[in-house]
Amino acid sequence: MSDGVATAVSRPDTPASTRKDWVSDQEVRWCPGCGDFTILAAMQTLLAEMGARRESTVFVSGIGCSSRFPYYMNTYGIHSIHGRAPAFATGLAVARPDLDVWVITGDGDALSIGGNHLIHTLRRNVNINIILFNNQIYGLTKGQFSPTSEVGKVTKSTPYGSLDTPFNPVSLALGAEATFVARTHDMDRKHMMEVLRQAYDHRGTSFVEIYQNCNVYNDGAFNDITSKDRRADYLIPLVHGEPIRYGKDGEFGVSRGEDGMLHLVKVADVGEDALLIHDMSLDNPSQAFELSRLARGPHEPTPIGVFRSVDCPEYGYEVARQLAEVEGRKGIGDLSALLRSSGTWVVE
């Protein structure tokens, strides 16, 4: 009786779905050309491919352009409060471990007003997939700098240039010891889908930063990384178990120098054997963190891919385990005994 809701959910075998099944009847209202469209399509395609169930899928968002996402998914969805989606999703995921819970958020939503919830969700490792659309600007409020905007950003609220040092979302997540941390971008649907697939499969909190172009207020912010002509020199692909190298002919790479630090190197200078082999499964997040520090912004060669993916106790599972353990020890709670637990007396 105590867990009536969680067990009442039936999951009948439904035939495999197609992308169309995941498209809601709502008109999509992002600006034409916005990077959000690609992410939406990738998500719809992925969930159909993965055999996910619409009735067991919940999208939770905060406020911002990206946070309209749940309205466009033919699943359960909540467009909640600015910054608070991880808190809402945590309660839902802990109460209902049978659900697939996604949080769709942006740089302002997740890192500014909702920063506290984000880091605490990551450290607890609740079973939620957090997808952060990073466009380095406030779109919905019409173009103020965000906590990921570069220093000196000229916007309506910073006519003489912004003074704040930005967050690096991947560094932040790794600092909170997130168990799955990845970065992808909106111009490579295949890569994005692969990263989202791994995020979906991961038990615990998955954190995915997607570089997303806001073509209205911050167009081209990620051009170095996404454009065909520059991509090779600026995008460092992270592939688990492979040496980290980039450049048109793989002529550059990442290597640990004699100073103990990671450096961008010419493969010809150091030799192939000196290249760092990417290992996303390292228990210690330090190397992943170092990789996240290679670029100070998307105008320098930037690692893209899965930084970290490790198995750790998942919070909701642990909560359920503790409940079962106590129930096993004490038996199902007896209300009448509870009310008598601090001693009683009888009046005839």
Binding site: S2, D3, I78, A87, L92, A95, R96, N116, L335
Partner: peptide, 27 residues
Amino acid sequence: KNFGVRTFQAEDEIAGAGSALGAAYGG
């Protein structure tokens, strides 16, 4: 806990309310 009660000590008052509402949404 043997009454099926889940208690969540949240990171702040806002998350206390937010998580409760999330759980309520879940039934």
